[in-house]
Design a protein around this nucleic acid. Structure first.
Lengths: 223, 223
DNA sequence: GTCTATAAGAGGATAGAC
DNA sequence: GTCTATCCTCTTATAGAC
């Protein structure tokens, strides 16, 4: 997924200064370390809240050294978004039109919940970006994401039309699945404030049970 | 709800410089204008993303003039949070232990959805704050909010125990209601990117229908 | 109460030595 | 490739005139 560079000044090098052909092991390792640390910082403070100093410290580098690898804070941010976007959308892509509706929706819910548990920073990265108006991700929302969701909404609509699911709006069902699962990552401090922080496994287990109960009884036609 | 001032330097005046006793109509009006504009700015960019310049422009004032009314950007932010917190928590407080369970939960869902529609900035203000670790709201989460949620969770648990609702975890049911309703405010750009922006009424109508269908069939015991 | 001017400092990015 | 030193802009907050 290519987000494009907002300001490709003429004569300037692209987002990533290092020429792919000449990338040494050190360069690759450093880039990965930077991206890794940057995800963590951007996820917890958003784009504007992050400072290049913090970003550099997060990967054990100095500021100018980080800026040797990524031309600017913005370029780094875009690189992180691109990196994370692929695995972010994968669970929805896996939704199988030929599978059993109930099973497919439950599997999607569980995959998204697992992502909130295992990769909460991915979720918070996107939450920050979208909450603040999706300045960098806007094109993706109206392009690739829109296509993907249209396609999967059609699948769900077909399941409703053939009586395999109760009649619900497919888009809003998808929003419901997103909201309920991402909530545990995005609002983690609130969840742990209310449930206690030594309860992570239990929290996600109970969440899955509750969602399964409500979704299955709510979506499956009564016999 | 008092959030307290993080750094009450001795000899300094409190958050709001204007002495309550002497507040003139102009002062009150100006404070309201500032708080109003500030909500809009803080909601869309978060605390760190907002600049005092923007905050001042949003209320048609100059920077020093705004800082005459509120000692610092942080003090203004806290004042906005305090102002909004009360109406933010009201719907949950309204949940009536003596009402009909299905009706009460539907009414809560509808009230929260209405808040997302009518006051999306309130929702985004809190979303930004919590997503970024609730630096100012942490005490509220572990204090007043925790008590309120415990109390309402007990109500829901009682409804489950007496067979009026399916057995679900009350906390996670509350999270589900929060997540599904606040999603429409917090991720509005995504929702409109996927559904179109000339559809606000339809969007919220369909959302309510979908949530009602899933919740009612998912929560009410089968006859 | 409101303004212009400015101090004080944080933050993004670069220069240039090594 | 990496560092120290530095530039310059943006931002918070204050001084002091009116």
């Amino acid at each position: 997924m290519d987000l494009g560079e907002p300001e490709p000044r003429p004569g300037q090098e692209p987002v990533n200064r290092v020429k792919p052909r000449k990338a040494t092991r050190i360069q690759i390792r450093n880039q990965e370390r930077i991206l890794d640390g940057a995800l963590s910082i951007f996820a917890s403070t958003g784009f504007r809240g992050a400072t290049v100093d913090e970003l550099a410290r997060a990967s054990g580098m100095t500021k100018p050294n980080l800026l040797y690898y990524f031309r600017s804070k913005k370029a780094l941010y875009i690189a992180v978004l691109e990196l994370v976007l692929e695995r972010w959308l994968e669970p929805l892509e896996q939704l199988d039109p030929d599978g059993d509706p109930a099973e497919q929706i439950l599997a999607y819910m569980r995959a998204k919940l697992a992502m909130s548990k295992e990769r909460p920073e991915d979720s918070r990265l996107f939450a920050n970006e979208i909450l603040n108006g999706a300045p960098m991700l806007g094109a993706v929302l109206q392009g690739h994401l829109k296509e993907l969701v249209e396609q999967k909404a059609a699948v769900i609509r077909h399941w409703c039309d053939t009586g395999q699911l109760n009649r619900v709006d497919p888009y809003h069902l998808i929003f419901m699945l997103w909201a309920t699962t991402q909530h545990y990552a995005d609002f983690e401090v609130q969840v742990t404030a209310l449930l206690g922080d030594n309860q992570r496994d239990k929290t996600y287990g109970d969440a899955a049970d509750t969602l399964e109960t409500v979704l299955m009884q709510g979506l499956l036609p009564r016999a």
